[in-house]
Simulated assay, not measured.
Amino acid sequence: MASRNRLGLVASILTIWATMSPALEQTTYAAEPRARIQFNLWDVPSGKPVPAMVCIRDLEDNSVRLPPDGRIMQQVSQTHEFYHGIEYEADNPDWIGPARKTLGIGDNQDRSFVYEELPSLPFWHEPVVYQTQPSFSIKLEPGRYQISVARGMEYIPITESFTVATQDQEHTLKLDRWVDLPKRGWFSGDVHVHHPTTKKAHRDFLLRYAEAEDLHVVNVLEMGHHRGTDFKQLGFGKKFREVRGAYCLVSGQEEPRSTFGHII
């Protein structure tokens, strides 16, 4: 009899737990409400949407937030990601590029130690920068946030704060030039870029990066060392140059490498 009573008691407890558990689970794991914030990046001179370099930061705790889910950035991108190659996803509106460390002492895995405390860009006061699509969204909990946007040296950088409640929002950020050097015969470029170009997705990333930074010429360098080369290129010479609109990839080689400098 006692055994049957104990079994009945266990069965009753299990029944009560099964009835209560969904409510308990919902209470324990209920997610904080989040709003979807849509950003549209607009180039004033051309009147067209453009990619750019962005950082979104929580003003309460200074954490960097990453689209599209608003997760807190735990670690900046590492050097090995560039060795393997960043792949651009043209059909993915949520695609973002690597989160690059722009402030603070780094090392050769996240930011060259030679910069020490110097900022990567004199006008950029955010800890990182990452590339976005011309139109992108991010989900954020209620609070106060800040977005900073830059597009190379010839555009006026933007920094705006915004408050998130529970409603979705949409913001259009207009990027305007302070100078137009191509009209004067000068074209911006990055002469020292290490990245493979053997895949189309690699070249797509570099060209989209060029557009986001408004770099008309990107010199992509295969890097020589005593064991061979890294950052393999699809090929060299005019045949392998790639031009899309006003942006161009040109492959070269950095060799030899030494303490006293490199030859390109």
Rank of each mutant, 00 (worst) to 15 (best):
E255C: 07
A2Q: 07
D43W: 00
A165L: 11
E81Y: 13
E81A: 13
G152E: 04
H225Q: 12
L14R: 11
I86G: 01
H84A: 14
L175K: 02
P119K: 09
F260Q: 05
L66P: 04
P68V: 04
P134N: 02
I147S: 03
F136K: 02
R36W: 06
L234W: 15
G261M: 03
E32W: 04
I96H: 06
V10S: 15
G189Y: 02
S77H: 14
T15C: 13
L175A: 07
R65V: 05
Q26E: 13
A31L: 15
V217M: 01
M153D: 05
A99W: 12
L7M: 14
T102W: 14
H192R: 11
P182N: 09
V129R: 02
P196V: 00
A2Y: 15
I158E: 08
G47F: 03
E117P: 03
L249S: 10
V250E: 15
P142V: 08
P119R: 08
E60I: 00
G70C: 03
L24A: 09
D204N: 07
I147R: 02
G252W: 00
Y209T: 00
E32T: 01
F162R: 12
E160K: 14
K101N: 03
Q146S: 12
A246L: 08
C248Q: 15
P142E: 05
D190Y: 15
H171D: 07
P49V: 10
R177L: 06
K200D: 09
G185D: 11
L234F: 11
G237T: 13
K200W: 10
Y130M: 02
I138M: 11
L103F: 00
G85L: 12
G104L: 11
G106Q: 07
L9M: 08
V54L: 00
K238C: 00
A246T: 09
W95M: 02
V54I: 15
P98Y: 12
A11W: 12
T27H: 01
Q74W: 11
A52W: 12
H194C: 09
H262C: 00
Q78F: 00
P127C: 04
Q233N: 09
L175F: 08
I56W: 14
I37V: 15
H226L: 02
H216L: 00
I105S: 01
V54C: 00
Q253D: 01
K48D: 08
K101I: 05
Q78A: 06
P127G: 07
V164D: 10
E141P: 13
G228H: 03
A150M: 14
W17L: 08
S63M: 04
W42Q: 01
K183M: 13
E254S: 05
P45M: 12
A165D: 10
I138A: 13
M73F: 02
P98H: 10
F236L: 14
G106P: 06
M153F: 01
